[in-house]
Structures are given as C-alpha cells and as structure tokens.
Simulated scan of single mutants.
Amino acid sequence: MTTTASSSPPPSPGLRLRLAPDSPLPRRLDGVWWPRSYDLLTEVPQLLAGLPPAWGHIVGVTVNGAAWSAAPGRMIVCDTVVHLRKAAARHAPDSVVLLTPGQGRWDLLVVPPDTPEEDAEPLMTTALGART
C-alpha cells in the first residue's frame, strides 16, 4: 500500500455538497456530492474538510465505479489516515461511503463531475428529497 501525505486543506468554498437534514429516522442517502473530477487525491481531502464536525474523523472512503482514478490505498487528511477503496457495487454505482469508527457510516450519491450545472443542481435537490 502507498501512503500519500496531504496537508489539512481548508474547506473549499466551491465544495458542491448537499447534506440531508438532520432526522432521527433512517435514510438511504446522507447527502449528494458533485466532485469536480474523478481524481481521488484531489477530491477526497476537499470533501472531508467540508463535512460536519459531528461526523467525526472519517477513516474509510469507498467509492464505486470504474471512472475514479487509481486509489493509493491510504492517504493522510487532516492528520488522519484515510483508507481508500474502490468497489463495483451494482446497487449503488455512483456512490461514496464514508466510515468513522464508533460513530457510523454515511452514504453520499455522487453526481458525475462532467454533469452540466443545469442538470446537476436539480438532481442534487431531487435526490435528497426523493431518497431521504
């Protein structure tokens, strides 16, 4: 496994992420993420920096789909080792799963980076409204 170091990036003002509202009820999606590329080394640190502090330190990221760049196995983000995995889950081809030990799992729908803004914005809103 290769380890890639990454400094603690500030939350990106251009992070395209929508989170489901807090609810005591279980839901299928915790949010929708629209990355700017399929480069995991660039996108994962920005995503993790923009998550709510209540989600804790994410230590596992699993992306689905062959479009993502090669995963180095692990990287350091905000002084935390984050394990990166790629999977080919047929039930959730465009998703990312975030894991925090002892706190939980969060599932995000991924809008493909090359999606035009006029298509992505309504998709993000609809996905949370329809699947939460």
Score class of each variant (00 low, 15 high):
105 R>P: 03
63 V>T: 11
42 T>D: 14
25 L>P: 05
81 V>P: 06
51 L>D: 12
110 V>Y: 02
107 D>I: 13
42 T>H: 04
14 G>R: 14
52 P>H: 07
100 T>E: 12
46 Q>V: 07
59 V>K: 12
44 V>N: 08
30 D>S: 11
59 V>P: 06
106 W>C: 10
95 S>I: 02
64 N>R: 07
16 R>P: 07
96 V>A: 14
49 A>E: 06
33 W>H: 12
11 P>N: 05
29 L>E: 14
24 P>I: 00
36 R>K: 10
46 Q>K: 12
51 L>Y: 00
80 T>M: 00
83 H>D: 10
69 S>L: 06
72 P>R: 12
30 D>Q: 08
92 A>Y: 07
87 A>I: 07
81 V>E: 15
27 R>N: 07
30 D>G: 09
129 G>D: 09
38 Y>K: 10
71 A>T: 08
124 M>N: 00
58 I>Y: 02
112 P>D: 14
2 T>H: 06
56 G>Y: 03
18 R>Q: 15
20 A>Q: 02
4 T>A: 14
42 T>V: 07
50 G>D: 04
43 E>T: 08
53 P>L: 09
18 R>F: 03
84 L>E: 11
102 G>I: 01
17 L>A: 11
13 P>K: 08
63 V>Y: 04
122 P>E: 10
45 P>V: 12
85 R>Y: 04
77 V>H: 03
98 L>V: 09
38 Y>Q: 11
19 L>F: 00
26 P>A: 13
3 T>V: 12
113 P>V: 00
31 G>T: 05
10 P>D: 13
59 V>D: 15
49 A>H: 03
120 A>L: 06
44 V>Y: 05
62 T>G: 00
119 D>H: 11
108 L>R: 09
17 L>G: 10
103 Q>G: 01
71 A>F: 00
74 R>A: 14
105 R>K: 13
88 A>I: 00
111 V>Q: 10
59 V>C: 04
27 R>H: 04
66 A>G: 09
49 A>M: 04
43 E>M: 02
38 Y>V: 08
30 D>P: 00
50 G>N: 06
46 Q>G: 10
125 T>G: 06
120 A>E: 11
87 A>M: 02
127 A>V: 08
7 S>F: 00
38 Y>M: 02
27 R>F: 00
90 R>E: 13
44 V>A: 08
81 V>I: 14
67 A>T: 09
106 W>Q: 13
75 M>N: 03
116 P>Y: 05
23 S>T: 15
96 V>R: 03
99 L>H: 13
50 G>L: 04
72 P>Y: 08
131 R>I: 02
112 P>A: 14
85 R>T: 14
84 L>V: 06
54 A>K: 09
111 V>G: 09
50 G>I: 03
117 E>R: 14
94 D>P: 01
96 V>I: 15
